[in-house]
Amino acid sequence: MGNDLTEAEAKVYDRQLRVWGLELQKRLMAARILIAGCSSGVAAEVAKNIALAGVGSLSLLDDAPCKSEAAACNFLISADADQAQSVAEASAATLHEMNPLVNIAALPGGLPAIPDPEFLRGFEVVLITSAPFSTLLQYDAACRQLGVAFFTASSRGSTSFFFANLHSHEYTPLETPAGVVPTKAISAFPSLASALSQPWKTLRARYTHKLVYVVRVCADFESHTGRFPTTEDLPALQQRARELAADARAAAAADANGGPLPRDLISEDVMPAGVLEEYVIGNAELAPVNAVLGGVLANEVLKAVSHKGEPVKNFFFFSLGDNVGLVETLGEIV
């Protein structure tokens, strides 16, 4: 890429050039990003945001037909879209209209069950939605070996989260005190497998987000079965949730500094019967939740390729129940 932008690029990106400067914009325009699982509303939000920001190359992977029920939450699929098209093809067409300066491609087929290193090597960032944890764990491990930044996200009912693994990530802080030259920092990220297996006794159970329990329960189920849980699986999931809750209470009771864990945080009535059920069977995505999660996640993707700003490490949770976004750092660096 040359030292200067074309006249068209400078005009389209004028506003953000004033915010973050030429060098950062050039980094974005050189970025190669893959989004797999475009049927979800979260994926659509992220794709829209990073396309408008001017990333260099955005590849979409989702062979679900436009007319499928799974694609109902993807607002990128226009009303007059060819129903024979895949979700990826219809989304790519809309994104190209939003920003024709970005190289947007709809890749054929769906996400392979087994990661292909040669395929993944062509990207700087991989975002996967709508895949069980059995698949996500494999792709996180493959991306880690290649040094490719890995993200996954999920939005179900009023609950949502994303996970980030940027491995060993060097970045420049956004803000420094007046007169101080910003220095680069490094943030090391745990693997997804490590994040999902952190012992409860190492957590400050009093302050742990309720969705951590939900994700742990579902991840354990999906990694063993290779599929998403259904209503029929709820009794087994609730039993596992009660076991985790008991472990957390025991850890909190043994922590003189943390004190006893409030029962209403992870009680059988609030966590398993409420949040867990909604996450498992409340598959309908809510546009406001997708907008919040997709906005934060898109910003993290841009941080990953620009190396500007401290990244979220490593889980971000958002639900309408508490109406706040919380960061949880789980797992150990190996």
Score class of each variant (00 low, 15 high):
333 I>C: 11
258 G>R: 05
104 I>D: 07
333 I>H: 10
282 G>Y: 11
207 Y>A: 09
41 G>F: 08
34 L>E: 09
239 Q>C: 05
207 Y>Q: 07
76 L>M: 04
247 D>A: 15
22 L>H: 04
168 S>Q: 12
197 S>P: 00
63 D>P: 00
124 E>Y: 00
121 R>P: 00
31 A>P: 01
266 I>C: 15
253 A>E: 13
55 V>Q: 02
161 F>C: 08
294 G>C: 13
148 V>L: 12
309 G>R: 11
168 S>P: 00
300 E>N: 08
144 R>S: 12
102 V>A: 05
323 N>M: 11
29 M>C: 08
95 L>Y: 02
48 K>N: 03
4 D>Q: 09
226 G>Y: 07
10 A>K: 10
59 S>K: 05
326 L>M: 11
12 V>W: 12
162 F>N: 02
146 L>N: 06
100 P>N: 10
43 A>V: 05
129 T>R: 09
106 A>P: 01
34 L>P: 06
231 T>P: 00
62 D>G: 01
322 D>A: 09
158 S>W: 12
286 L>Q: 15
222 E>K: 09
279 Y>G: 01
269 D>Q: 15
183 T>G: 06
323 N>A: 15
196 L>F: 05
153 A>D: 00
62 D>F: 10
273 A>L: 15
253 A>M: 12
321 G>M: 04
90 A>S: 11
118 E>A: 07
327 V>R: 06
222 E>Y: 08
293 L>K: 12
292 V>A: 15
152 T>L: 08
324 V>S: 02
295 G>W: 13
312 V>K: 13
122 G>C: 01
103 N>K: 13
256 A>F: 09
313 K>N: 15
82 D>A: 14
8 A>K: 11
244 L>V: 02
334 V>Q: 13
181 V>W: 10
264 D>M: 13
17 L>V: 00
289 V>K: 11
99 N>C: 01
334 V>I: 11
69 E>N: 07
147 G>Y: 10
78 S>Y: 03
197 S>F: 05
334 V>H: 14
7 E>G: 00
220 D>G: 09
210 K>A: 09
51 A>R: 03
254 A>T: 06
153 A>F: 07
255 D>K: 04
113 A>S: 09
255 D>C: 10
248 A>V: 04
313 K>L: 14
301 V>E: 04
87 V>M: 06
9 E>H: 10
178 A>I: 13
171 Y>I: 03
92 A>H: 01
155 S>L: 09
56 G>R: 05
208 T>D: 05
65 P>H: 13
186 I>T: 14
25 Q>R: 10
5 L>V: 01
257 N>P: 00
179 G>F: 06
24 L>D: 04
140 D>M: 07
135 T>E: 03
115 P>E: 08
45 E>L: 04
254 A>G: 05
44 A>R: 03
333 I>K: 12
123 F>L: 03
173 P>S: 10
177 P>Y: 14
88 A>V: 06
107 L>N: 02
191 S>E: 01
145 Q>C: 08
263 R>A: 14
71 A>N: 08
295 G>A: 13
11 K>L: 13
176 T>P: 02
175 E>L: 15
155 S>V: 15
185 A>K: 15
236 A>N: 03
10 A>N: 06
130 S>K: 09
222 E>C: 12
312 V>Y: 15
310 E>F: 07
314 N>W: 13
122 G>T: 00
112 P>F: 07
128 I>Q: 07
206 R>T: 02
99 N>M: 06
241 A>Y: 05
126 V>F: 08
118 E>S: 06
179 G>C: 03
224 H>W: 02
166 L>P: 02
298 A>P: 05
